[in-house]
Structure formats: structure tokens, C-alpha cells
Amino acid sequence: MDPFAYRLVSSLARAVAAARHGRALHPAGRTFTATLDPLPGAPRLGVPALDGPAGRPVVVRLSRALSLPPPLPDGLGLALRIPGGGDPGDLDLLFTTGGRPPAPPWLPYPVLDFAAGFYSTLLPYRSRLGRVRLLAVPVDRRRRLSGDPGRVAAVPAAVPAGAAPAGPLEFVLGLDGAVRAPLARLRLHGPVPPGEEVAAFDPIRNAHPGLRPTGAVQRARAAAYAGSQQGRSAAGRKG
């Protein structure tokens, strides 16, 4: 991405974030504790955080991309942070609801309910297995979290482990691209305590050499994240 385009994307994201006094995208969301369990026989990416061991504590944020008022569908987000999974630091992976097969998984797709979405990183990563996208698919795709689908405030009571009648909210993480295979199971347990919400996820800075964002659109994403964070900081100073 040339410098002018980078500045343009960054400035636009900064303006939106400043106007919203928050994230330019996915401003409304809730953060949850979760665990990540690699699946037997899953391909090895050379990223220890995704290759094992089982029961790794992680953090998940569920959010709405544009904050359109329910019951309107919206692009729903699943942000995953693996503490200490980067090199160095944390590993952040961002998923957005995309098209279900046979539709392309890189195409954003609005849905009504967090438990029904087919999530994708949308953009490719470079790995030891080639260019891949990561997917996150609900284990029970017929499940609905509440009678008020897609409303972030309705999610916390629906995901704790053992929550009746359906049990915890679970996803299978997988690969799409050069290799197609399931990787791990992600299980949400419950909302994090007040004041411990994750301030920001950044898949560009919080990465691992074995799983690197690649391509021109990923560079545009880097500009957007930088601008959004600057806009939020500026809004905070003014407030």
C-alpha cells in the first residue's frame, strides 16, 4: 500500500473512532473467558498456541460490526486473544461472519445470531502450510442464544458452562485454503469481571512469525487499526 492510501485509510478510521468515542468498527461487544483445545490429528501450524496443550485459557470478544439495531442483521465479530501466544506477546485473531459454503468465506455476511454465524478471518495468512484463512464454526449451528437474536446484552446469560438447556457456547476453529482441516475447539465460559474487558485487539501487532497477515488488504487493515486507535485516544483526551 502506497503512503497516500495508507494515510487516507488511517485518517478515515481515526475520524470514525473519534466521532464514536470508541472503535471505528465493532464498537458494541462483550468479553468472555474461554479455553482452547487442539483437536487430535489436527495439522501443525508451527504456532505453539494453536498446536497445544489442551485447556489453554484465552479471551473472546463477541461484537457487532456496525452496531445496527437488532433485529437488523449485522456482521458479527469473534475476536480471540491467546495470552502469550505471539512472538513476543499475545496472539490476536479476528473473525467476522462470512459466507457459508459454497459462498466464499472471504465475503462479509450479516447474520442475526452469534450462535448461527459462519465466522472467517476473511483475509489470508501466510503459514508453513501455505496461504490459509482461519474459520470459526459454532458446534451447534441450530442453536439460538435468546429470543432477542444478535443483541450483545443478551449474550452473557447464554454462554456460561453448563447453562441450561444447551450448555456452553462452543466453536470449532479450522483452516481454509491450502489445507482444509479442523484445528481446535473453543469453549466460552462466561463474561469477564467488570473493568477487565480487553481494550483492543490488534491482529497486526499481536501476531506470530508462523502465522502472518499477508496481502495488500491486510496492509489496509493495519492502517485502519492504527487510525482507529489514534481516534479513540484523541476522543479520550477531549473527554
Rank of each mutant, 00 (worst) to 15 (best):
D87V: 05
R142I: 00
A161K: 00
R151P: 02
L211N: 09
R44K: 15
V159R: 04
A178K: 09
Q218V: 01
E197G: 08
G174N: 11
L94S: 01
V9P: 01
L169M: 09
A116H: 07
H189Q: 09
G86E: 01
A34C: 14
A28C: 07
A199K: 05
L36G: 11
P213D: 12
G162D: 11
A220S: 13
P105F: 01
G215D: 13
P191S: 11
Y125H: 13
P104H: 04
A13F: 00
Y109P: 00
V9A: 13
G85Q: 01
R128T: 14
A65D: 09
L123I: 03
P213L: 10
S228K: 00
I82F: 00
A49S: 11
L94F: 00
A164M: 03
Q229T: 01
P168C: 03
P88W: 05
A49I: 10
F114V: 02
P53K: 12
R180N: 14
A24Y: 00
T31E: 15
D176E: 15
P108M: 07
P38A: 11
V172S: 06
A164N: 00
R212Q: 14
H208M: 12
L173K: 15
A13P: 00
P57W: 09
R128M: 13
L145Q: 02
R232D: 02
L169K: 08
A34F: 12
P108S: 07
P209I: 10
G150L: 04
F32W: 06
S228C: 03
F4D: 03
A154S: 15
P193F: 11
G84W: 06
A224Q: 02
R141M: 13
T214K: 09
A184Q: 11
G231S: 02
P191A: 08
L169C: 03
G239K: 11
A13N: 02
R141K: 08
E197P: 06
L129T: 10
D2M: 06
V139C: 11
L175I: 09
A157W: 03
L122C: 05
P102K: 02
S67R: 14
L8Y: 03
P194F: 08
A28R: 15
A15F: 00
L94T: 03
R185N: 14
F4I: 14
G147W: 08
G99Y: 03
T31K: 04
L134E: 11
R56Y: 03
L80E: 11
F114G: 02
P27Y: 14
A157G: 14
P101C: 00
S146L: 10
D113A: 01
A13T: 01
G89N: 01
A115D: 05
E170L: 03
L122G: 05
L175V: 04
G98Y: 00
L112H: 10
L145P: 01
P48N: 07
Y119F: 10
P88R: 10
P160Y: 05
G231E: 00
R128I: 10
S233L: 12
T121A: 06
P43F: 12
A200Q: 07
G150E: 04
Y6K: 07
H26F: 15
L122H: 08
R151N: 11
R131H: 13
L62D: 08
E197Q: 13
L36S: 09
G29D: 14
R20C: 06
T214W: 13
R56A: 14
P53S: 12
